[in-house]
């Protein structure tokens, strides 16, 4: 599909409290366009709670309920059950949470809601960090990325593969997308909207202040995350995985991935791997780990 086919309607209102260059609002615009006004959104503690702007005003033209950090999927379960009881089956319930609220504190409620076959879309906008609290490590933060409570060496552990945890729930639809591919994201949300049962979509959302890159580079950082294989675009449907876009070409080895260094060199969170002296060993370790993940992807999904 072409960008032109994406509807003009906006349910995100300009002049919010989001940082300039924010990937979350970029993604929200697409989500709102794909689902339309017949949706109710549940938001746990995350940047979006700030983006909404100050009471008594809001920047969202969609009914939105804020809920506690770990409770997005549970709150959405309640909304969904109540709508079903009222016969309002045409309303899409969306939980919209960050990676902290998904990978870490919210994973229990999320897993429960998926297991209960809750008819909703859970969307995780993943900026690989607790941005809202001032950039602390999360389960989604990649190895060696620095955060505000770290030593200079950065995180000492690899990130979780949330997508694979989700697949273990055998839900009807899950997908990974990225803000840099809006048509792909739009299509995935649209598809999820039409499927009954639990749907999970995770959106790679490079965060300028969190990753320490220039605010004009959000889209570029997203594209590079896919081109280097740091992030994969795929759909999971009826227990089958289909990689798509550039990720498909990478999986099938029709193109070579860009070196991971091409992505991380623009990010201040990896600055200590380049200054004062390039840390070749650690860069190689990151590259090897990425290669290993793709090797496993090929074994499992090709």
């Amino acid at each position: 599909m072409a960008i032109k086919e994406i509807p003009t309607e906006e349910y995100y209102l300009p002049g919010s409290a989001a940082c300039p260059g924010c990937p979350a609002t970029m993604a929200l615009r697409i989500v709102f366009k794909a689902i339309g006004k017949k949706m109710i959104m549940i938001v746990p503690a995350c940047c979006t709670a700030v983006i909404e702007s100050l009471h008594p005003n809001t920047s969202f033209n969609i009914p939105t309920m804020n809920i506690a950090f770990e409770a997005a999927a549970a709150g959405a379960s309640g909304v969904e059950a109540a709508l079903r009881k009222q016969g309002k089956d045409d309303i899409t319930v969306v939980a919209w949470a960050g990676d902290g609220g998904t990978y870490d504190i919210g994973i229990q409620a999320l897993s429960g809601a998926l297991e209960r076959n809750t008819n909703f879309i859970y969307i995780c906008y993943n900026n690989q960090i607790y941005s809202n609290t001032g950039i602390q490590r999360s389960g989604a933060t990649p190895k060696y990325a620095a955060w505000t409570t770290t030593t200079v060496g950065g995180k000492t552990e690899y990130r979780k593969e949330m997508g694979e945890i989700i697949q273990a729930h055998h839900i009807p639809y899950a997908a990974q997308a990225c803000i840099s591919y809006p048509e792909d994201l739009y299509k995935k949300i649209k598809k999820a909207k039409e499927i009954k049962g639990p749907k999970y979509i995770e959106i790679m959302a490079p965060c300028p202040p969190g990753w320490r890159f220039g605010m004009e580079k959000t889209v570029e950082m997203g594209t590079l995350s896919v081109e280097t294989g740091a992030w994969a675009l795929y759909e999971y449907e009826n227990d089958e995985i289909k990689f798509n876009g550039i990720s498909k070409l990478l999986l099938e080895e029709k193109i070579n991935p860009k070196p991971i260094e091409d992505w991380i060199k623009f990010q201040g969170r990896f600055r200590h791997l380049f200054i004062p002296k390039k840390d070749v060993k650690k860069l190689k370790e990151i590259q090897d780990h990425t290669n290993l993940i793709w090797k496993r992807y090929r074994k499992c999904y090709l």
């Binding site: 209102l13 300009p14 002049g15 919010s16 409290a17 300039p20 909404e52 702007s53 100050l54 009471h55 008594p56 005003n57 809001t58 920047s59 969202f60 033209n61 804020n66």
Partner: peptide, 16 residues
């Protein structure tokens, strides 16, 4: 805490 939608909920952010 009930809030109503408006353009410029955080003000004229063009000032930023």
């Amino acid at each position: 805490t009930i809030s109503y939608p408006m353009k410029g909920a955080t003000g004229k952010t063009g000032n930023w």
